[in-house]
């Protein structure tokens, strides 16, 4: 059972990696590399997020980034704290951090979209 869980976690890591190449690439392009980079002001962000495509890019970036990053952080920590009990604690900690920052991210996006 644990092995099967591990496969899903690993697969999620790989799938979010591919997704991040697309959404993070788009995010960086729009903000920094496009011939006319987007304005980094509240007005600029609000206008961008009115476009469904950009809202989707930012939403997937939030979800994929948190999952991929915290799964990676968990893997690093497991290398230094082997054993089943530390693994459970590390996994729980990553979930708490992930959910907390997901809520913070959604709470930030909502007022920007509804302005």
């Amino acid at each position: 059972m644990n092995g099967a869980k591990g496969v899903w976690g690993w697969l999620g890591q790989r799938l979010t990696a591919v997704g991040l190449v697309l959404v993070l690439g788009t995010h960086l392009w729009v903000l920094h590399f496009a011939p006319e980079p987007a304005a980094l002001t509240l007005a600029g962000v609000t206008i961008r997020l009115k476009a469904l495509s950009y809202l989707l890019v930012d939403s997937f970036l939030l979800a994929f980034g948190l999952y991929h990053g915290l799964y990676g952080l968990r893997s690093v920590l497991l290398d230094y704290f082997p054993g089943e009990r530390p693994a459970r604690a590390i996994t729980a900690l990553c979930w708490v951090v992930g959910v907390a920052f997901l809520i913070l991210g959604v709470a930030t996006l909502v007022p920007l979209v509804t302005r």
């Binding site: 509240l42 962000v45 939030l62 948190l66 951090v97 920052f101 913070l104 991210g105 930030t108 007022p111």
Partner: peptide, 11 residues
């Protein structure tokens, strides 16, 4: 990413 989310949440 975590710092970025905290900064953006200043909105």
């Amino acid at each position: 990413l975590l710092m970025h989310l905290v900064v953006i949440s200043s909105v």
